[in-house]
């Protein structure tokens, strides 16, 4: 379980998280929606210990993410993360991209790592691209590679930071389909997203972020189709 407890986070004078609390149970899919600058991506970075926090606490399976004694490299193995920019490693083939971390981080044998990487690449529909260099692929394919690369570490949680925002519209579908598949398989996910349809259909709960706080959180369909908070109503009427 991921437990975010009253987290505050500032960049210089700008406070981007103003006391955020959120519990995500194993197997749950939570989507975070909200305007740009509302702090939703920052929250993911804080959960993954990429960004430090100013106060509050984040626990992943009971481990305090930001405690000094926490091995953050070890912790990140549990938390797969996919970004808006897919960041494929351009000097490696698709297969090598996905096999690298299992091999060097988990110290698997080369054969083992390749086997897992292959499986995850087939999982996201890239089984026929193993020896291709990622720069020769479309953004949607590269983003699916990024998902497979994260999955190859066998994470317990996936953090998805606007993974379709940088994609051409016609490529969004294939990536969302992949995420839908993961959700059906029971992967625990926190998705920062602008895809309201995806948030409504795939997630269990939706949280609406407004100026660094969660303005509304509830059952996905209810928040998207029948929001209670006027701020959420206003936001949703604008993005629709």
């Amino acid at each position: 379980m991921i437990s975010v407890q009253n987290v505050h986070k500032s960049f210089g004078d700008l406070e981007v998280l103003k006391g955020v609390s959120l519990d995500v149970e194993k197997g749950e899919v939570v989507s975070i929606i909200g305007g740009s600058g509302s702090g939703k991506s920052t929250l993911l970075y804080c959960i993954n210990a990429i960004e430090p926090i100013n106060s509050g606490k984040i626990l992943v399976d009971g481990v305090d993410v930001h405690a000094k004694e926490t091995n953050k490299d070890k912790l990140r193995q549990k938390l797969g993360m996919v970004f808006q920019q897919w960041n494929s490693f351009p000097h490696m083939t698709v297969l090598e991209n996905a096999a690298l971390a299992p091999r060097i981080v988990k110290k698997m044998s080369k054969e083992e790592a390749i086997e897992i990487a292959k499986k995850e690449l087939e999982h996201v529909g890239l089984g026929d691209k193993l020896d291709v260099y990622p720069t020769k692929m479309s953004g949607g394919q590269q983003q699916r590679l990024a998902i497979a690369r994260a999955l190859a570490m066998k994470p317990d949680y996936m953090l998805l930071d606007e993974v379709t925002s940088a994609l051409d519209p016609e490529l969004v579908g294939e990536v969302l389909d992949t995420l839908r598949l993961l959700a059906e398989e029971g992967m625990t996910m926190i998705c920062v997203t602008h895809e309201m349809g995806f948030a409504r259909d795939v997630s269990d709960r939706v949280a609406y972020f407004h100026q660094g706080v969660i303005a509304e959180i509830g059952e996905a369909r209810q928040v998207i189709t029948d929001p209670q908070n006027p701020l959420t109503q206003k936001f949703l009427s604008k993005v629709r």
Partner: peptide, 16 residues
């Protein structure tokens, strides 16, 4: 930097 963050997010150490 985002490429490096992506690598770190896979559990790689700074030196890896």
């Amino acid at each position: 930097p985002s490429m490096q963050i992506a690598a770190r997010s896979l559990g790689m150490t700074k030196w890896q």
